[in-house]
């Protein structure tokens, strides 16, 4: 009788279960009504089955978002796990949609599902990509804007994984500052 290794039939479990959300900007509906849960997964194999099945971010129309969040956390500031948090924000210029957007978003997803931030991965709530005419954005959301140690570790690892040059900086902003800002920019709480 042939012995089959469990490697060949057991899927590789992830540390967390994740939910992928899609937002499509329809101005006739409320913000919440435009937000849809696509699917949940908790194995490496099911992550790829979903990723390979959906459109690349660069093919989405302006006003759309993908969000990947841990199961039980909704992709909005108001969620209990997000409301004291903030985000490492990557702003892309128009040329970067072709050059970097899909690569950066996939790298972001791999950081999340692979728990790339070591023990500080527990601070991660999710990640969002916004497709916008004026410039796309990608962000990793964390739970507590006061947790300097976790936030800076996550920021350093993330910047390295995206291959952002040392001389360039990325900023971390609290959701409360983003929600109450008066101009077009939000002040950075941390920079790496």
């Amino acid at each position: 009788q042939e012995i089959v290794s469990p490697e060949s039939y057991i899927k590789h479990p992830l540390q967390n279960k994740w939910s992928l959300w899609f937002f499509k900007n329809d101005k006739t509906k409320t913000w919440q009504a435009n937000l849809r849960l696509i699917s949940k997964f908790d194995t490496v194999e099911d992550f790829w089955a979903l990723y390979n099945h959906i459109q690349l971010s660069s093919n989405l129309i302006s006003g759309c978002d993908y969000s990947l969040f841990k199961d039980g956390i909704e992709p909005m500031w108001e969620d209990e796990r997000n409301k004291r948090g903030g985000r490492w924000l990557i702003t892309l210029n128009k040329q970067q949609r072709r050059q970097d957007l899909d690569r950066f978003w996939l790298e972001t997803l791999l950081c999340l599902v692979g728990e790339a931030f070591d023990d500080y991965s527990d601070e991660v709530c999710g990640a969002v990509v916004n497709i916008r005419t004026k410039g796309d954005k990608i962000a990793i959301w964390t739970a507590d804007f006061d947790n300097r140690e976790a936030i800076t570790h996550i920021g350093r690892v993330y910047k390295e994984r995206l291959g952002i040059p040392m001389k360039m900086t990325i900023g971390y902003q609290s959701h409360s500052d983003t929600a109450t800002k008066s101009g077009s920019t939000t002040k950075n709480k941390f920079v790496v």
Binding site: W48, A49, S121
Partner: peptide, 20 residues
């Protein structure tokens, strides 16, 4: 401990998943 997977390990499964 945590179930951590590095990028190369994860990428190795991208097209394997479609075959199973």
């Amino acid at each position: 401990g945590k179930r951590q997977y590095n990028r190369d390990f994860l990428l190795g499964f991208q097209f394997m998943a479609a075959c199973t």
